[in-house]
Design a protein around this nucleic acid. Structure first.
Lengths: 223, 223
DNA sequence: CGCCCCGTTGAGGGAGCTCAAAACGAGTGG
DNA sequence: CCACTCGTTTTGAGCTCCCTCAACGGGGCG
């Protein structure tokens, strides 16, 4: 289903307008969108809720997470500005979505979206494409979680975030160390230790705020 | 293509006809399908190949894998009979596909599929749904790889396979211990040790062939 | 100023990896 | 039918990496 996907090809995240040959295919979505805001740590939807809509991030960051019975938590995804999330296959939320920082997003009812799909197959293709890119991302994450050491996970996380943030300056990490650890399948201590060891190796520089990091040596991070 | 793909509703794998309101939506696919067979360990496609088609398994088992530069391997997916695979988002294979055992499958050219989609949006919905279920599966795997211990991984693997195999008798594992280890992010030794420890705990019974396992106590496995 | 949350650092232990060798099953040829 | 071989699986011993538990530091905010 690959039409010419244009533009930011390095961007693995979902971003419908980038896929649409003719942007008008998505223009119809404007008629059904609704804007909402969420405060830090506020829940957008919970695991088990009915999945009757999907979202697009206008600003802020969202985490897609799951809580295991014994308290262990796993973060499946960080969604940044421009990303879409909230597509579930069976009408029920398999994960919860929470605001990492203050976030404003557009909400699209699922039923109305399906109506639009039937009117314009290009929209279906575009949504399909978004899902496929999400799938590719999820699979690349299974590789990292299954076969990478702690330093490799942290480094690839930094590189991934810097690609998506695409600011040339300091990398901004809105999430806490706990979030990062739960995303990488590590503990906060290991994440912290790895960051300092990367810093002493002068591959990165952690700014005093702890949430801002400068990538000094990307080649070293790739290894 | 064999429409009515049977009833196994607990099947998390992709299975297009199960989603289609009207099976005729997929009947058109029969016009573009081609049958092929692959021997054990034969490559169906390689990482980096152009992705110009997708497949559906008639019989046998396929592994979707990726090889890291240093020789480490990771298996993203085992596809069983009835499953579909080979959807890539950007026209290039992100993973390779190989036959775990002798496999015969149907091949669908992507371009022809797209034409069919434009004629019938229900097909698009169905494919989208398949991808969403794959996505849900991939994410649940990130949870297992990120936050589960070795015994938990092996046990959940056995349960997953038994759900998909759904024979009441002995569970048939066509893949080698190496495959299982690369799927679970463990080493073959750990997989083997865990299996024997599960056996001494009388939760399972490993038949002499080593590739057949009887689940004696599913409740114990779930924990 | 003092509290609290977040992040860092330290010491010790355990789960799983590495290296190595034995046991076993399946296939092959005599 | 048996002997042999080869690949796979199992078992063993030692070690490493990361987790656990604990204490410390430091920045933000009331």
């Amino acid at each position: 289903m690959s039409t010419q996907v244009d533009g930011r090809s390095s961007d693995r995240r979902i971003s419908p307008s980038a896929d649409i040959p003719n942007p008008n295919a998505l223009a119809a979505l404007e008629w059904i969108e609704a804007r909402r805001s969420f405060a830090r740590d506020e829940e957008i939807y919970a695991e088990g809720d009915v999945a009757d809509s999907w979202y697009r991030i206008i600003s802020g960051t969202v985490r897609i997470a799951k809580l295991l019975i014994d308290g262990r938590r796993h973060i499946a995804e960080f969604c940044l500005i421009g990303d879409c999330f909230g597509f579930d296959s069976d009408g029920m939320r398999a994960f919860s979505a929470e605001a990492v920082e203050h976030v404003t997003l557009l909400r699209y009812p699922l039923r109305a979206t399906e109506r639009l799909i039937d009117e314009d197959p290009r929209l279906a293709r575009s949504l399909c494409h978004m899902t496929l890119r999400e799938l590719a991302h999820a699979r690349s994450r299974t590789v990292r979680l299954g076969r990478m050491t702690a330093p490799e996970r942290v480094a690839s996380f930094l590189l991934e975030m810097s690609e998506r943030n695409d600011g040339p300056g300091a990398l901004n990490l809105p999430m806490s160390r706990v979030d990062i650890a739960d995303y990488l399948g590590l503990t906060i201590e290991t994440v912290s230790r790895t960051l300092t060891s990367l810093e002493t190796a002068s591959a990165i520089e952690v700014l005093p705020s702890s949430r801002r990091i400068v990538l000094r040596n990307r080649a070293a991070l790739a290894a």
